[in-house]
Design a protein around this nucleic acid. Structure first.
Length: 576
RNA sequence: UGGGGGAUCGUACAGCGGUAGUACAGCGGACUCUGACUCCGUUAACCUAGGUUCGAAUCCUAGUCCCCCAACCA
């Protein structure tokens, strides 16, 4: 009995869903229950998004439920800040755990009792062996481990010792509780794994109530069982923990029988998703924080302007499998552009302004013209934009000596100013150093709105702003944080950082309407890309982040034609 | 040289004994008041070798290569 029809449900097809579908069809469960189990020791990133979408998505698809459970078993690494940020990020991504917010620490008392249960049954013992020695005695991949001198300790003594561990009689590292399984196992996880360790540390939730804490292995499966989780979905590296997961479930009087399934974690080109490295980037100041728009964290993506729906769609397209893989970041960018193209209202913004004077336009005059807010969305309506004698256009849109395929402005060339007039460049004014500082142009008054009555065509349409009305802004262009498609997480990864991952443009000029933009609301700067206001903005001084650039075929042509760099190709480099 | 996994276009994912498909990327073209979007076309893959079968990406055998495991991390 499930809330969905297994035959017709639009549930997608991946191996996890196949398993769930089978289990439900066979009546093995009344309802599917999954869980997303983050450790609160860092911020969630795009890799977690895959897990979140999988766990919550499976529950949704099959009319089940997904719990949010913090795997908070190591107080030396976990913090409340992360617990709060994670909840915020999961909600932002679009998922809701309802009443089902749990913590492994909620179960500390129960887990403790189960530890005593194992001791009483002779399946766990207190070991006094020092860490180093224990490590040496565990053996290697090819040699079996050796028994500790304490392995045959009597149950009564184990119980006494374990209780005194809990009571705080011993310092950190003095003793541990170990499962008694098989020191000769080829699976290292079965060589009497540690179940409890002494940690005199304050826990974000339980404070100083405990000084012994369960390890991941002892906490995870049992927590699943307590919550009646049916399908415990985790990543591939936990594959060889599954026999231990099962051993514990089978040797404890747990209330349900969860099963663990593993899938391949997400990897992306030019991206690092190692929590260790991300933490290092933040701590060492290579980025401004966990929400730096260059970070692959959900907080960073949010600040950069990536909509959660784009992340969900990206994850859906990537799929779920058991083979390690690295997704091309271009696939992510595409998902972002695709959504934003349909939803982001258009504006004009000049990033690198070049002054234009329309010589035959009356001085002091200005007029308002109609502009379409979003050609992809008729409901988005129109707005009025101001035009005048003095304007600014993009520096890149003018070349004094253009190559053959350059459609934009150059001396003698006519182009369209979007929604305004056709203008012709008459002269490029230079300063003492020979740099072009101003364009003298003329306009055709008959082309108001952008079309010529005589039907003549122009090759290019340029974006522009009125000098008298434009608002100055700072615009931050982000490029890949790492300059290699495969940053070497093992070597000196900081050497792979892209020195040009952030380009700050000041003195940009944007449409006045943009002064009122809201943080997080995506906009398109025509012909440039998608942007959103950053909270670093101050009244009268807006700051925008580039979420992702528009596809730029011209830049590609340029780069191909002038591989040596120079004026061409300077805009390229993975326009993010 | 132990244990556990995985190999399908450049990338990711389907294909579950019967014409190898989709998306991204690439290339070519059409359209265009965004060199955007959209549309059309196109390049391109079953790790190898045997076997079973009328027929194998799929089943079997043997190899090859890649990933994970020797924290009191998760």
């Amino acid at each position: 009995m499930t809330a969905v029809d297994l035959e017709t449900a639009e549930t997608g097809r991946d191996f996890v869903r196949d398993i769930v579908r089978d289990d439900l069809a066979a009546g093995r469960h009344a309802q599917v229950i999954t869980r997303f189990p983050p450790e609160p020791n860092g911020y969630l990133h795009i890799g977690h998004a895959k897990s979140i979408c999988l766990n919550f998505g499976v529950a949704q698809d099959f009319g089940g439920r997904c719990n949010l459970r913090f795997d908070d078993t190591n107080p030396t690494k976990e913090e409340q800040e992360y617990i709060d940020a994670i909840q915020h990020d999961v909600r932002w991504l679009g998922f809701d755990w309802g009443e089902h917010l749990y913590h492994a620490s909620d179960y500390f008392e129960q887990l403790y009792e189960w530890a005593e249960h194992l001791i009483r049954n002779g399946k766990a013992y207190v070991d006094d062996t020092p860490v180093e020695e224990m490590r040496a005695m565990r053996g290697t991949l090819t040699e079996p481990g050796r028994e500790s001198a304490f392995r045959q300790r009597a149950a009564a003594e184990n119980l006494d010792l374990f209780r005194r561990m809990r009571a705080g009689e011993f310092p950190n590292g003095a003793r541990v509780l170990r499962a008694k399984i098989d020191l000769a196992s080829g699976n290292m996880n079965l060589r009497d794994p540690v179940l409890y360790r002494i940690l005199h540390a304050s826990h974000p939730r339980t404070g100083t109530a405990w000084c012994i804490y369960p390890t991941y292995d002892f906490a995870h499966g049992q927590s699943d069982a307590i919550e009646k989780v049916t399908h415990s979905i985790c990543t591939l590296e936990f594959e060889d923990h599954r026999p231990l997961y099962d051993w514990l479930i089978e040797n404890l009087p747990v209330p349900s029988r969860p099963r663990q399934y593993e899938f391949a974690r997400l990897n992306m080109t030019y991206t690092v998703l190692s929590k260790r490295v991300l933490t290092e980037l933040v701590r060492h100041g290579h980025v401004t924080g966990w929400d730096d728009p260059r970070m692959p964290t959900l907080a960073g993506l949010r600040r950069r302007g990536v909509p959660p729906a784009a992340i969900r769609e990206f994850v859906r397209r990537v799929g779920v499998a058991r083979a390690n893989s690295v997704v091309d970041v271009a696939m992510f960018d595409h998902a972002v552009r695709e959504l934003l193209n349909k939803t982001a209202p258009r504006y004009m913004a000049v990033l690198r302004p070049l002054k234009v004077v329309i010589e035959n336009y009356p001085e002091g005059k200005s007029e308002e013209l109609d502009a379409i807010n979003n050609p992809e969305d008729p409901d988005a309506g129109k707005r009025r934009i101001a035009f005048g004698r003095e304007l600014y256009v993009e520096r890149d849109d003018f070349m004094e000596n253009p190559p053959k395929k350059f459609y934009r402005l150059s001396p003698g060339k006519e182009v369209r100013l979007r929604y305004a007039y056709l203008v012709t460049c008459r002269e490029a004014v230079k300063d003492a150093s020979g740099e072009v500082v101003e364009l003298r142009c003329t306009y055709d008054p008959a082309t108001r709105g952008g079309n010529a009555p005589d039907g003549r065509k122009v090759q290019a349409t340029l974006h522009w702003v009125s000098a008298a009305h434009a608002v100055p802004a700072e615009i931050r262009l982000y490029n890949q944080l790492f300059q290699r498609p495969d940053p070497r997480a093992d070597g000196d990864i900081m050497a792979d950082l892209n020195p040009n991952s952030l380009e700050v443009l000041s003195g940009c000029l944007v449409e006045p309407a943009l002064a009122a933009a809201n943080t997080g609301e995506p906009v398109q700067f025509e012909r440039q890309g998608y942007f959103c206001r950053d909270d670093d903005s101050r009244p009268g001084a807006p700051v925008f982040n580039r979420t992702v650039g528009l596809r730029d075929t011209w830049a590609k042509v340029q780069a191909a034609g002038a591989p040596s760099g120079g004026e061409a190709g300077k805009k390229s480099g993975g326009a993010r």
